[in-house]
Nucleic acid binder design. Structure first.
Length: 573
DNA sequence: GAGTTTGAAACT
DNA sequence: CAGTTTCAAACTC
């Protein structure tokens, strides 16, 4: 049985392994595993439980040293380990219901056994019984007509068999830990929250998954996509949930941010942790965005947004504690497109970015002036060498006009609301004065602006010059041809070199301040699952970094790809 | 402590 | 598989 061999009995405790359940083994397999320990004779797993010992201990002794991560291991009951999670472990192994209540633990009981069942009709031979579900004998319980004891071993064994017949995983842990958490220990991410998810998911309807009726909540985990609950509030970023953990959580900005980022990251990443459960009942809402995407990340994000969206009880107005997730969600909904909120969004402060922008703009102006002279001389040389410049010059006015129209808004958008706004314009004008009017923005600048204003691209039917929409082939449009590109590249280098310190500062800042990478990046998906859309504020530094490392051509292509994204978004939006 | 509510488990 | 019933824990008063 389950328990004795260690095999399957692990009560539904919060075991740490995911595998246990997810790959729900076929019945046969399950049985094999379950009874492996019992050699032949004992058809039933009924384990020899020592009444006085909670199963885990008994099992622990049996646990094979070898089982390296085999299923057996997974099936094992929680080892007696001292838990990092006192709140959870202390309780009867796994029954969600048995999950410990921190406050009760002390009150309830002995360290060995924290709770006693009170079964009256099940004879303690059904999963209704915590003891039975946990794979332990009743001992000192308040149950009536209990058969979950040594004296009724036969009956118990039968019951176990019957239970396994119905559900081979009945005695396995219900909670699977996060794939990113330690295998042996569920990862705690804060508030006692554990990364993991209920294998079957809960089906709560009225509790909002914020009461112990909810198995997920009881297990101290967030509801996951496995859940079929209604009006779930047990998701990361949930105000209600936070309120439970922090009576007054209004000041816990860090938590909120972490929660929000984690939620979003989870939504985008491959893992569902942190994303609110998607009620199957609202499948119809999959069309919420009017987009049926096969992209899992988008889909997940949609789920996340959907999830938040459906929480009616969540006061939309709300407290200062409104999680960033909600804010992000709102913005995403508002813009009717997917919006990614960087993990660093709350770490990199707007003022810092503004300062960086200002520095960039100023340096850009300086560099432009410095290079303008060179460029002019180059242009003159070019003119001397060829008369074909006439054709170019005829185009210039047109292009120039378009650029002027386009540049302005771009600059405005890019630096909206900042002091750099004016600076930017000043620089533009100065540039215009010193340089040919037809002069396009440098690829680097475009890249920055592309990153910053992908939304703008959507609105703009036709990017000026086709620079943005068509690969930013600046060189071909300029009299000086490739020379211009080089000039821009030089200009960028100068700017970027000068600002490198600032960029590094940002990077360092990002790295050091993101104290909860695992929480924010639960899926480790940041690198792989880049968002389709980028938040301007955080993207800027990235672009700067990328630009500094990439040659001009790369910048061009980068710009192009970004544009393409913008186009895609426009289509999908 | 009694009664109610809740949702998993069991059953149909 | 969906709907209903049973059950015991969680919760309320």
């Amino acid at each position: 049985m389950e328990r004795s061999e260690g095999g399957d009995f692990p009560p539904k405790k919060l075991q740490s392994d995911t595998a246990a359940f997810t790959d729900a083994p076929a019945k046969k397999l399950a049985r094999q595993l379950d009874f492996t320990a019992f050699s032949d004779s004992a058809p039933a797993p009924a384990p020899t439980i020592l009444p006085d010992h909670p199963q885990p201990q008994a099992l622990a002794t049996v646990q094979p040293q070898t089982q390296s991560q085999t299923q057996q291991v997974l099936l094992m009951p929680l080892p007696p380990q001292p838990p990092s999670h006192p709140s959870i472990r202390a309780v009867k192994p796994d029954s969600p219901r048995s999950r410990p209540r921190p406050s009760n633990d002390a009150k309830e009981g002995t360290p060995k056994r924290q709770k006693q069942c009170n079964c009256k009709h099940s004879k303690c031979l059904k999963l209704y019984c915590e003891c039975f579900a946990s794979g332990i004998y009743c001992d000192g319980c308040n149950c009536v007509n209990c058969h979950n004891n040594v004296e009724n071993e036969a009956a118990r064994r039968e019951a176990v068999e019957a239970t396994l017949e119905r559900n081979p995983n009945a005695f396995r842990p219900k909670i699977a830990s996060s794939p990113h958490a330690n295998r042996d220990n569920r990862e705690e991410v804060g508030d006692g929250l554990i990364l993991g998810k209920h294998n079957k998911g809960c089906h709560c309807k009225k509790s909002g998954c914020l009461k112990k009726y909810c198995e997920c909540f009881q297990a101290n985990i967030l509801c996951s996509e496995n859940c079929k609950c209604m009006d779930c509030k047990n998701f990361e970023g949930s105000e209600e949930r936070q309120a439970l953990f922090h009576g007054d959580h209004t000041n816990n900005l860090a938590y909120i941010q972490q929660a929000a980022n984690a939620a979003i990251t989870g939504a985008i990443g491959s893992s569902g942790y942190g994303s609110p459960p998607v009620p199957k009942k609202r499948k119809g809402q999959d069309l919420f965005f009017g987009v049926t995407t096969k992209d899992p990340s988008l889909s997940r994000l949609a789920q996340f947004q959907q999830g938040n969206h459906m929480k009616p009880s969540a006061p939309s107005s709300s407290s200062p504690s409104i999680p960033a997730a909600r804010a992000a969600n709102n913005s995403a909904l508002g813009s009717s497109k997917f919006t990614y909120r960087s993990l660093l969004a709350d770490i990199i402060q707007p003022q810092d970015l503004k300062a960086l922008c200002s520095v960039l703009v100023v340096l850009s102006g300086e560099a432009a002036r410095t290079l303008a002279d060179n460029q002019n001389s180059m242009d003159k040389q070019a003119e001397n060498q060829t008369e074909t410049s006439l054709a170019s010059s005829t185009q210039d006015p047109v292009n120039s006009q378009k650029e002027a129209d386009a540049d302005k808004p771009m600059a405005d958008d890019c630096l909206s609301g900042t002091q750099t706004d004016k600076v930017s314009h000043d620089d533009s004008s100065s540039d215009g004065a010193d340089a040919p009017k037809s002069r396009p923005m440098s690829p680097g600048t475009l890249a920055l602006m592309c990153d910053e204003q992908d939304a703008m691209f959507m609105a703009a039917p036709s990017p000026p010059n086709g620079l943005i929409g068509h690969g930013c082939d600046t060189s071909s449009q300029l009299p000086s041809g490739q020379g211009m590109t080089e000039v821009y590249a030089d200009q960028e280098r100068i700017i970027l070199t000068k600002t490198e310190a600032a960029s590094q500062k940002d990077q360092i800042s990002n790295g050091s301040t993101n104290s909860r990478p695992e929480a924010a990046n639960q899926n480790g998906s940041v690198g792989n699952d880049l968002p389709r859309t980028v938040t301007p504020t955080t993207k800027m530094p990235q672009t700067v970094i990328a630009a500094s490392a990439a040659p001009s051509n790369d910048l061009l292509s980068k710009t192009t790809s970004l544009t393409e994204n913008g186009d895609l978004k426009a289509k999908s939006g």
